[in-house]
Nucleic acid binder design. Structure first.
Length: 99
DNA sequence: AGGGTGACCCGCT
DNA sequence: CAGCGGGCCACCC
């Protein structure tokens, strides 16, 4: 039921993130009307880990890049390319995009 | 069908 | 200010 929609919504929210900005799992979870599913959001991206979605723009609320199935190290490099300055593996909150 | 894990978050000590 | 524990949802074995 909602399982499929949930994953789809996660991708949609992820795609909504403009280039040069990042969002947190919690923000996405709230955007899909499931504020408690922040963990499931990460799970969806991890399970799918498709390059078809800019999941590298999704980071933790603490500003930490969190993890990346393709390589956390690579994720940071991608964000830097987008224009996000990563300091010590952390992204300033001003780069956080709010829905 | 049940249990365990994971790219997390929030609260308390 | 930093560290620890519990809780949440979805997916895999």
């Amino acid at each position: 039921m909602a399982t499929r929609s949930f994953t789809e919504k996660v991708y949609s929210a992820c795609a909504r993130i403009p280039k040069g900005k990042v969002s947190t799992y919690s923000r996405i979870a709230r955007a899909i009307k499931k504020p408690k599913s922040a963990r499931a959001v990460g799970n969806a991206l991890n399970k799918n880990r498709s390059k078809s979605v800019p999941c590298h723009r999704v980071i933790r609320s603490d500003g930490d890049v969190g993890g990346f199935a393709h390589g956390t190290r690579k994720k940071i490099a991608m964000l830097r390319r987008e224009g996000v300055e990563i300091k010590n593996g952390k992204a300033p909150k001003r780069f956080l995009f709010t829905f």
